[in-house]
Design a protein around this nucleic acid. Structure first.
Length: 432
RNA sequence: UCCUCAGUAGCUCAAUGGUAGAGCGUUCGGCUGUUAACCGAAAUGUUGUAGGUUCGAAUCCUACCUGGGGAGCCA
């Protein structure tokens, strides 16, 4: 039986006769010669079929097979400058597993609505394949980095009780006799309990926001990576964030260059990203965007355009820190030198990709935490467990959340979050 | 929720009040190195839905439906 070769490993198999299992991605034919673009999940490669080299039956079945027919191809793997990618397979035998026709996504132009309606098939295209592979590499890099730094993965629940941060709109689901449960908008509060048990932890999972946001930067379901560290301050958490981001970019540049090039990504923009990222005080950030024409007042959060303008003033991701306490969640530690500010920060990506990280230091004093709960009109009873964390061995602690799709969108240089996840969930789109 | 744009062949679009079309895809035929291959032929329509104006509506009007982009909100 012939060994199976993966297209991404063709270089290693030059000179060998092997089998490829995959699909016909595209085809050109020229009389007694057919050129197939095969894809096998690991990559794309050209197969050359000359009529004389295989049986009449195999030749005809390949000739009849349309785009996305599944096939098993056996042949000699060789290097050839004329082939896209530089390698090709000289076909000696072929079996068409399923001959198919009328695949909806042709190699020509399509509109967004049509492609989204056919997302389950669109995922096979070269661009989408590249994005999803980069996403995989990014997630693995994040996890490798944190694991190597002594973090423990402790996942947090997706069903949460009614009272949460009270800042965003939540999806409710019926939960037996307990009334309504809500899909999590952040694992952070639970992360704090886990950090007190394990020191350095992170959770990684889906997050849900029922906001009716309809922009290229929003999904109703997105994946968030949230590290949390005991005995750590704001600067410690953001050093981890910064180094983790640099590590992930280096990893993607090293292992997914082909995919980045296929996406037309300007690699120099990614190669430039180096620690340390500039720290920009909230006051200075407001000053910068107002000088450039923004109407945003001190004391409010930035709009999407503000983030773009601000990030464009720097060629690195920037760490905007010390947002006013009034616009941050109840658990943010106030700045000891000026209580109007909180020990919080966001990381804004360059090139207009906006906020990719948000985080800060959490209140460690139980009395202050109680006061903040009351100020925000939150029910103390629901947060009893959270207050306990401050009663039994409280310590300074900090963490952050990183939006995976926003990060991947930036790394890939694509213009919409919906391509950074296999099946995006958006306002007005839940099919397929 | 608001603003804005768009719905015509499988897809991308044209037709600006007077016979509903092109390119691509598909099917058939030709071509031994194609690169979005090329050449020839064929098939393909309830113009988003409902109503209205008109001798006549894809085209003008009203409502609704569906989707794209953006704002607010959020990450």
């Amino acid at each position: 039986m012939t060994d199976i070769a993966r297209i991404q490993d063709f270089q290693r198999h030059v000179g060998a006769t092997m089998k490829v299992q995959g699909w016909i991605h595209n085809k050109r034919s020229s009389g007694k010669l057919q050129f197939l673009i095969l894809r096998d999940g690991t990559g794309f490669a050209q197969a050359v079929v000359s009529k004389a080299a295989l049986s009449e039956e195999a030749w005809v079945s390949l000739e009849k097979a349309g785009q996305e027919s599944s096939v098993e191809i056996t042949g000699l793997i060789k290097e050839d400058k004329r082939a896209p990618g530089g390698f090709e397979i000289d076909v000696k035998d072929a079996t068409v597993i399923q001959s198919t026709h009328d695949f909806p996504i042709t190699p020509k132009d399509h509109g967004t609505a049509f492609l989204m309606e056919n997302r389950h098939l669109w995922l096979r295209s070269e661009r989408q394949h590249a994005v999803i592979r980069i996403r995989h590499a990014v997630i693995k890099a994040f996890r490798d980095y944190l694991d190597d730094q002594g973090f423990t993965l402790v996942d947090t629940p997706i069903f949460t009780p009614a009272a949460c941060e009270g800042t965003t709109t939540l999806f409710g689901v019926p939960y037996f006799d307990e009334g309504t449960a809500y899909l999590t908008q952040s694992g952070q509060l639970y992360n704090e309990a886990n950090a007190a048990a394990h020191g350095k932890v992170y959770c990684f999972g889906p997050t849900f926001r029922a906001e009716k946001s309809k922009t290229r930067r929003h999904l109703t379901e997105f994946w968030m990576l949230e590290p949390e560290m005991a005995f750590a301050h704001l600067a410690d958490a953001f050093e981890v964030a910064q180094n983790m981001i640099c590590f992930a970019i280096q990893r993607v540049l090293a292992t997914k260059k082909l995919e980045l090039e296929r996406l037309g990504r300007d690699l120099t923009r990614l190669e430039k990203v180096k620690a340390p990222f500039p720290w920009v005080h909230y006051d200075d950030a407001i000053k910068i965007i107002r000088e450039k024409g923004s109407k945003t007042e001190w004391g409010s959060d930035f709009g999407g355009t503000d983030e773009t303008v601000l990030a464009e003033s720097f060629d690195q991701p920037i760490i905007v820190h010390r947002f006013p306490s009034a616009i941050k969640a109840f658990y943010m530690e106030p700045d000891p030198t000026d209580a109007r500010y909180s020990l919080s920060a966001d990381i804004l990506a360059p090139e207009g990709y906006g906020e990719i990280v948000g985080g800060g230091e959490r209140i460690s004093d139980p009395d202050l935490l109680l006061k903040r709960l009351h100020d925000h009109g939150l029910p103390e009873e629901a947060f009893r467990w959270y207050i306990d964390l401050r009663k039994y061995g409280s310590m300074p602690h900090a963490g952050f959340g990183l939006g995976v799709e926003r990060f991947v969108t930036w790394i890939c240089g694509i213009d919409h979050l919906r391509e950074a996840i296999a099946f995006p969930r958006m306002l007005y789109r839940i099919y397929p």
